[in-house]
């Protein structure tokens, strides 16, 4: 039996992506009924190992695993032995010794899920690795886009912000290109460089350069703590050219969708009126997140059936 992992969207075919999205769409029904649980993964143990802080992604995975009926081990690095210097590998080995069926891992370094997937026999789901990928976020964004736009071939999606270091942006870029969409990226020079064209994006500069052509615009959170020195100027400067406010929104199409992976820096990359406004589908993204994660657990934990490639 060959096990499957979900380490990233780069390398998944359109058929594989659509299979996950179709399954996720069907999972939504469970989250709308009174008993938000199925017995499918009863008796399976799913481990959430978060070596990097996150609230919403962790809760989303937590709910997804529980709603699929699995038992959950919820591990985060604060106050754990990893904080005392135990290596990632040792930490996971210890968890594995307690017998698990699936690992969902988030880590600040790119490539950690790939390393773990090589070492252990059970499926690994990447919940975000360094500046590489955040495939479940990419999938829930794709599902949200598909709900509103249908077939994504020929559609134009703009991603604005620190595209270079955003694993959300990268996963979306890979997935959107595979599904035939056109991707425009915009942001300050150091974090939205021309090199991104090698990954299939059209590189622009300011929000104004992309807003008119886009069917959907994905605003990224500007993370000062992640940037290091000298990559962007002040918040005011950022909001002036790379943020989305009502005036700018009006320059776009009437049905333009506004997306954001959360949490939103209100007033910086997104004006509050836009974040809460009619075009924003931010909360739908969150709803779809649980369904996507349930779908992945369903698909990956099958022995024969898990058909989602790493």
């Amino acid at each position: 039996m060959k096990k499957r992992d979900l380490l990233g969207l780069r390398g998944l075919s359109a058929a594989e992506l659509n299979r996950i999205l179709d399954t996720a769409a069907r999972m939504r029904a469970i989250n709308e009924r009174r008993i938000k649980k199925v017995p499918t993964l009863r008796g399976r143990t799913v481990v959430l190992a978060f070596f990097e802080n996150s609230t919403r992604t962790r809760i989303s995975f937590d709910l997804a695993a529980r709603r699929m009926g699995a038992d959950l081990v919820n591990f985060s690095v604060q106050g754990s032995s990893a904080a005392k210097g135990e290596s990632v590998l040792d930490t996971i080995r210890n968890l594995d010794a307690m017998r698990m069926d699936c690992l969902i891992v988030r880590h600040g370094s790119s490539g950690v899920p790939h390393m773990l997937a090589r070492q252990f026999p059970w499926p690994v789901i990447n919940a975000g690795d360094g500046i590489n990928e955040h495939p479940t976020q990419g999938l829930l964004d794709l599902l949200t886009l598909r709900d509103h736009l249908g077939d994504l071939r020929g559609r134009t999606v703009a991603i604005v912000g620190d595209v270079l270091h955003s694993r959300v942006a990268r996963s979306n870029l890979f997935g959107l290109r595979t599904l035939g969409a056109r991707v425009l990226v915009a942001g300050p020079g150091p974090i939205c460089p021309p090199a991104l064209a090698e990954l299939g994006a059209e590189v622009r500069h300011k929000v104004d350069d992309v807003i008119e052509e886009a069917d959907a615009v994905m605003m990224l959170r500007i993370q000062r703590e992640r940037l290091g020195r000298a990559m962007i100027s002040t918040s005011r400067e950022y909001a002036a050219f790379y943020g989305l406010d009502l005036d700018r929104l009006r320059k776009g199409r009437p049905e333009l969708l506004v997306m954001h992976p959360g949490p939103v820096n209100r007033g910086v990359e997104l004006a509050p009126e836009v974040a809460d406004g009619g075009r924003s589908v931010i909360l739908e993204q969150v709803t779809n997140g649980v369904a996507v994660r349930m779908a992945l657990l369903f698909l990956l934990l099958g022995e024969e059936g898990g058909d989602v490639a790493a």
């Binding site: 179709d22 399954t23 069907r26 999972m27 499918t40 779908a295 369903f298 698909l299 934990l301 099958g302 022995e303 024969e304 059936g305 898990g306 058909d307």
Partner: peptide, 10 residues
């Protein structure tokens, strides 16, 4: 479901 009889299809 997970006994390998059929592909897991929802």
């Amino acid at each position: 479901l997970y006994t390998g009889l059929e592909k897991a299809q929802l």
